[in-house]
Structure formats: structure tokens, C-alpha cells
């Protein structure tokens, strides 16, 4: 057995009392330069570090080809890593339970690989951890957030709600009732807005919103990619639902460097072909803008050639790749 291949290296990190397992995707030797930034990828709940549909493997491979060493790590109690899983893991993550471990992880990676810093990419609950960790780590230079939830997980399991939702998507009567329910919620939301209450609902994750405001308003570069919500129109959320995206963009303030986009055709995990491709391409552009390094141009040329060939292969049977990403919501800076 070997620990290293031409493009990958397995590693362990002792972090906050647990041994964490990870995979480093190595950039080509010709692309190694000074002042490098790495990318640390955190999978969504409850996935091992490959993430849904091995999306994180695909992205890390691509980022490394573009010159950015990329690290996928299993947090404590997940995947191959040591550690006990807290009884209610999602609640634990939402409260920033992995904050310290992810921050220390970022710092150890930076020290071990002599990097200038890392950008943390997180999907869903991984994005929550990324924000909490970024708020306490000086080594985190930027964030890539994929569909981060800004509300808390429900205290009661929504089994009945889910069953009703499924029924409403299958039956005509259910669909009509669902639309009626949406209108009622919309009216309620309008009444709230007219009363000057543009505050998030009670189940908002306020500690997370506080970290977001702190990071975004301080000018940390953030790439925020979201998938369209079910029954949503354009870039707005489903009727009657609180518009978190607009709220957090407002919260970020005028000094922020947040680039937010809704990716048409992507699913929540970004593991479908459109989601995978959009993240790969958006991150490549964004990293080159905010974190260029001395051989970025050379890397970009290589990536463009490979991407063209990948797209040709991957989307031979699809028709919408020419516009995988739509509607930039707010590019500030």
C-alpha cells in the first residue's frame, strides 16, 4: 500500500484530541509557486469527505489542476476519522460545534504545506462550519459557500410535513392546496414586511448570521452559490418563505466582497452534472480574481483546455450547459 499517487496524498491530522483523515490533491509540479492559497473542502451532513456523488473529489481534482492544493478532510466522528458523533449531529453543527476543530485544521494545513492561507469551501452543514471557523481563524482568507442554511434544523422531525409535501407534488388537489398554502404564507409575509418587520423568523440561526455579518462586512471574499428552491421563481425563494439570500446580502453591507449566484439546474448538494460543473467553473474564475498566484495564467490555460474537453464529454446529451449559472444576485466590492 502506498500513501501518495501522482496527484493525491493521504494524510492524518491530530486535531482537538482526534485523529482526522484527509486527502490532499496536489497541484502539478510546474504550478507550485510562492504565496499559495489552499482550498479546504468540508462535505455536507452526514457525508464522508468525498461528498454526495463524489462531488468534492471532482472539485478538489479540478482546483489542484488549476494550481490550488486542495484538502478534503473527515471531521470528528465522520468518515474515516476518529471521534464520537454527537447525539444530534445536525444541531451540533448548526450551533458551531465543529468551529474550533475546523479552525485548527485550517491552521495545521497552512503550516504543514507552507501556505499563505486557505479558502474554506463548505456545502450545506459544511458551509455552516466554514463560517464559524472563518470567524476565529486568521488563516482563513475566503469562503466558498454552497447552499448554506441560515435557519436551524426543526426540533420535531417533519415526517408528516414531508409526507404532505410529497402528496402535494403528486396529486392535483394536493398541488392546489399547496399553492393556496403558499399564498397564505405570502400574505402573512407581506403583512410582516408592511409592519416593518423584515427580521428573520424565529428559527433563524442567529449565531451564524452574526458570524456572516462579521465576515462579510469586514470584506472577506465570499463566493456564495445556491441552488434554486423547489417551487421558486427566478432567484427568489418559494412564495411565503423568508428571503434569506436578500437578507444576508443586505447584512453584508457596502464594503463586502460577496459574489452570490443562483445556479440553475443544480441540486442542493451540487452533485448533479450541472452543479458539479458550475462549482468547478465558478470557483476557478473566482479564485483567479481574488487569489491569483504567479502561475495563474499558465494554470488557467491548462484548465480551459481540460474543461472544454470535459464539457464535451460530460454534456454530450445535454442542452443547457451554455448557461449553467444564471442571475448574479449581488457582486459587491
Amino acid at each position: 500500500m502506498i500513501q501518495t499517487t501522482a496527484t493525491r496524498e493521504l494524510f492524518t491530522v491530530d486535531c482537538q484530541g482526534d485523529t482526522l483523515c484527509g486527502t490532499c490533491h496536489l497541484p502539478a509540479k510546474g504550478l507550485v509557486g510562492s504565496n499559495r492559497i489552499g482550498i479546504l473542502l468540508l462535505a455536507g451532513f452526514p457525508m464522508p469527505r468525498a461528498a454526495h456523488g463524489d462531488a468534492a473529489v471532482c472539485w478538489a481534482t479540478s482546483f489542484a489542476e488549476f494550481g490550488y492544493p486542495s484538502f478534503r478532510v473527515d471531521l470528528p466522528g465522520v468518515g474515516d476519522s476518529d471521534g464520537d458523533v454527537p447525539a444530534e449531529l445536525l444541531k451540533y453543527i448548526s450551533a458551531g460545534g465543529y468551529e474550533r476543530v475546523a479552525a485548527e485544521l485550517a491552521e495545521q494545513i497552512v503550516a504543514r504545506h507552507k501556505l499563505a492561507g486557505v479558502v474554506i469551501l463548505g456545502q450545506c452543514s459544511g458551509a455552516i462550519t466554514a463560517m464559524f471557523a472563518a470567524a476565529i481563524s486568521a488563516k482563513c482568507r475566503g469562503l466558498i459557500l454552497l447552499d448554506p442554511p441560515f435557519h436551524l434544523p426543526p426540533a420535531v422531525r417533519p415526517t408528516v410535513k414531508l409526507a404532505l409535501f410529497r402528496w402535494s407534488t403528486r396529486s392535483r388537489i394536493g398541488g392546489l392546496l399547496s399553492n393556496g398554502y403558499d399564498h397564505l404564507k405570502k400574505l402573512r409575509m407581506q403583512v410582516r414586511m408592511q409592519a416593518g418587520k423584515n427580521a428573520p423568523p424565529e428559527n433563524a440561526n442567529f449565531p451564524l448570521l452574526k458570524r456572516w455579518k462579521h465576515l462579510a462586512s469586514a470584506g472577506m471574499p465570499v463566493l456564495l452559490l445556491t441552488a434554486p428552491e423547489p417551487k421558486a421563481t427566478d432567484t427568489k425563494p418559494r412564495a411565503g418563505k423568508f428571503d434569506y439570500l436578500q437578507y444576508i446580502l443586505d447584512l453584508a453591507g457596502s464594503r463586502s466582497r460577496v459574489e452570490a449566484r443562483v445556479v440553475a439546474g443544480a441540486n442542493h448538494t451540487f452533485s448533479n452534472p450541472l452543479g458539479k460543473a458550475a462549482v468547478r467553473e465558478q470557483v476557478a474564475d473566482w479564485m483567479a480574481t481574488f487569489f491569483p498566484f504567479e502561475r495563474s495564467a499558465q494554470a488557467a490555460e491548462t484548465l480551459t483546455q481540460r474543461a472544454a474537453s470535459n464539457i464535451e464529454t460530460e454534456f454530450a446529451h445535454r442542452h443547457s450547459i451554455l448557461a449553467p449559472v444564471d442571475a448574479p444576485l449581488g457582486v459587491k466590492g
Binding site: M1, I2, Q3, T4, T5, R8, L10, T12, C21, D80
Partner: peptide, 13 residues
């Protein structure tokens, strides 16, 4: 002791 590694096979690890 848990040892992660790559096992080389034809065309992959």
C-alpha cells in the same frame, strides 16, 4: 491502528 493507503491496480489506485 487504521492505515489508509492506495493499492495499485491496472489503470487506477
Amino acid at each position: 491502528v487504521e492505515r489508509a493507503g492506495y493499492f495499485p491496480v491496472s489503470g487506477a489506485h
